[in-house]
Design a protein around this nucleic acid. Sequence first.
DNA 1: TCGAGCGACTAGAGCGCTCTAGTATCGACA
DNA 2: TGTCGATACTAGAGCGCTCTAGTCGCTCGA
Lengths: 331, 331
Amino acid sequence: MTMQDVAAHAGVSRALVSIVFREAPGAAAATRERVLQAARELDYQPDSRASRLGRARTRTRSLGVVFGVGHDFHGDVLDGIYAAAGPADYEVLLSGVTRQRTERVAVRALLAERCEALLLLGSDLAPRELARLAAAVPVVSLLRPVRAAGVDVVRTHDAKGLAQAVGYVADLGHTRIAHLDGGGVAGGAERRRGFRDAMRRLGSRGAATMLPGGLTEVEGATAAEAFLALPEPRPTAVAAFNDRCALGFIDVVRRHGLRVPQDVSVVGFDDIEQAGYGHLSLTTIRQDVERLGQAAIERVAARLDAGDPEVREVVIEPRLVPRGSTAPPRR
Amino acid sequence: MTMQDVAAHAGVSRALVSIVFREAPGAAAATRERVLQAARELDYQPDSRASRLGRARTRTRSLGVVFGVGHDFHGDVLDGIYAAAGPADYEVLLSGVTRQRTERVAVRALLAERCEALLLLGSDLAPRELARLAAAVPVVSLLRPVRAAGVDVVRTHDAKGLAQAVGYVADLGHTRIAHLDGGGVAGGAERRRGFRDAMRRLGSRGAATMLPGGLTEVEGATAAEAFLALPEPRPTAVAAFNDRCALGFIDVVRRHGLRVPQDVSVVGFDDIEQAGYGHLSLTTIRQDVERLGQAAIERVAARLDAGDPEVREVVIEPRLVPRGSTAPPRR
DNA sequence: TCGAGCGACTAGAGCGCTCTAGTATCGACA
DNA sequence: TGTCGATACTAGAGCGCTCTAGTCGCTCGA
């Protein structure tokens, strides 16, 4: 079943069928409908391999996205990307990172598809490797602020997010505030900086504690052990690297008899779906996935459609979502 | 950068370069190395669009996999699929389901790539729709036991898994046992049945309670509320539909002052990474993702390579992984 | 010495599209 | 009436591979 079959069935040329399916100008409305009808009758769908290959001489309008398969927040961002890619007439090609399949392999697969640009979600690649990629094809690092030659960055204002978290709990009356940091993962350094600066601004009204956290619940749990081992008086509020880390933390401190939020307030980051669940109700810093996706596509379009040679960093504002895991400290 | 460039650089024909990259017989070892060297020097990588299109006359050897993007367990299964696909010389094409992107859309995209077979992870499609797909291309339903014409099924023995869970807690001395069921989701009915049968086998030593659960923590949390509202004496052990559901359940009952495992034992299903985390330490029924992936690929190969016309259901044995969320009941 | 057989390599016709450079038709306008 | 400009449509040359059907030496056995 090819275009030729549809063309024969509709009594037009192959080229016309192509025009209709590409929604290109140059077909009369009636003919267009006749072609679509023929396609429907034959249950025809264009071959996207051939389509992309055929487009190779001009523009492919396809972009590769690398993401972590089990990573819930990446799913949210992907939604944002899909939502923005369609209207900009870009096709999205996915390549997943799993335990077995490294980011490097995922990227190779996309390059083999000759996609026009690369969006990397929370990339782990070394800056020099990113720069090497960027020399071949526009690269947007999503969620990870990286300084690499030619690499655009689209991210949430991580530092401001942590400032919001600190500001919020400080306004509730907390003074001893801890940060479960992200270590070396995407965004970790920025959030740490945001936390430190915000605490500094609190001056004598704030006492900061840093605890090593990370991407997942297990690091949050480990951080909780460290938290519980702190000398009294312990911090009364905690800003975690992200929601999963916050959830792991909460889980463990509760197990040790601390109540959240009465004994310790916790703020997450991302606003993954779980954070909104009634039984968890995690106060968090929401990343705006729609705008992240939109901005990433805009960056690609600027490079490819508008020919913008500039490397840019687009920073999206986060927003605090108050929920049940925060409260004024007990006196 | 095309094969032609590499051919010219290595001083051979385009066809020979193709032979080398396909690892097809017909090239001398020395020539092979010369070609690869030329490719390395030019930083050449074959165009997989063109490659798949060129193969269209014979066999594509590509298979499409539909999975849920934020679904951690799907990531594990994907790893199993990747691991098995490589040796069987199949290329894996991914298509993710997100909140915005339905399974139907994901499938369409794969069909447009003209993949030779479809692997659906925990598919939500109606049997008649699956049957329609299966009429066009071999379809393997992974994780979901579905009765649809022409659709192969590869899954864990869900019923046995729940029997293992029930048997394990019964051996610990529990008699009042609850199941947080999965409702209508993939595997839900089987696990429910396994639970019921296992309880029936316990005879007078068992009293079963059914509570509605589901795929994620939030359903587990809701089930926990229902659990807490049960008249005393409540069940002392709970077999959840899956790990996430179990985790949501545990979270809520702990909040209400119950201890796990002292007051209530909990068994999950899947063995996602989180289940093994020290702070959670969830006893669970492990699905063997390596074998699931292997079996799925074997089914595809049987259909496509061996021409097996038979529809089959491959059922993989689950295995109980005892951890810290289970203990004998208090007397 | 000859041809069969084999291994190494190449020519060239696809694969199913896209898209440029046309042709045909027709209405408008001078 | 002739011509101009649209609009509607088509021919055909790619896109970068794959793979069949060869060709071209070489060795080897008779």
